[in-house]
């Protein structure tokens, strides 16, 4: 019953938060209206969201977000230093193919976005069967070390969260 009335609890929470931020006031009236929108919109559009993404360990998400935000700040400082002070000819760009252990599309999307936002790497493509991720590195001496770090630092945590 609850499952049918609230098909996507995360979407409900997200819509409520977004509406309250748009209104930009903290009051019970705004909260109630945001909650009504958050309950009605997923219910009316439920036929276009057939399967809900599985999050087996949602309590690990905050830890991942803290690591991600810290890495984004560090990444930006290091990329800024590389961009400003290194001559173009000294940069060693490289392609890296990362074999993936995670299979669900949501987890791969999260991993690709994480890679793009962190040190000197941009995710460019997935292979046709979804088994490899193509990553472009701005400046690296050791491509294998970058691949191992991505696998151990981000992919392992995402695998814990999603599977």
């Amino acid at each position: 019953m609850i499952q049918r009335l609230v098909p996507h609890p995360f979407l409900t929470a997200l819509l409520t938060a977004v509406w309250m931020l748009l209104e930009n006031t903290l009051s019970w009236g705004v909260f109630v209206f945001a909650l009504i929108l958050g309950l009605v919109i997923p219910f009316l559009t439920r036929m276009w969201w057939p399967n809900r993404p599985k999050l087996s360990r949602p309590f690990k998400v905050p830890e991942y977000l803290v690591i991600l935000i810290w890495d984004i700040i560090v990444a930006n400082v290091s990329v800024a230093i590389t961009v400003v002070f290194k001559r173009n000819a000294d940069m060693k760009p490289a392609w890296i193919a990362i074999p993936l252990d995670i299979r669900s599309p949501e987890a791969i999307t999260c991993l690709a976005s994480t890679i793009t936002l962190t040190p000197g790497t941009v995710s460019a493509d997935v292979s046709s069967e979804g088994a490899y991720l193509l990553v472009h590195c701005l400046d690296t001496d050791d491509a294998d070390a970058v691949r191992d770090e991505i696998k151990s630092r981000y992919e392992r945590r995402l695998k814990e969260i999603f599977e």
Partner: peptide, 11 residues
């Protein structure tokens, strides 16, 4: 971009 051993191609 590098080619893959398993015969897959990039999407």
């Amino acid at each position: 971009p590098p080619t893959l051993e398993s015969g897959e191609t990039w999407a």
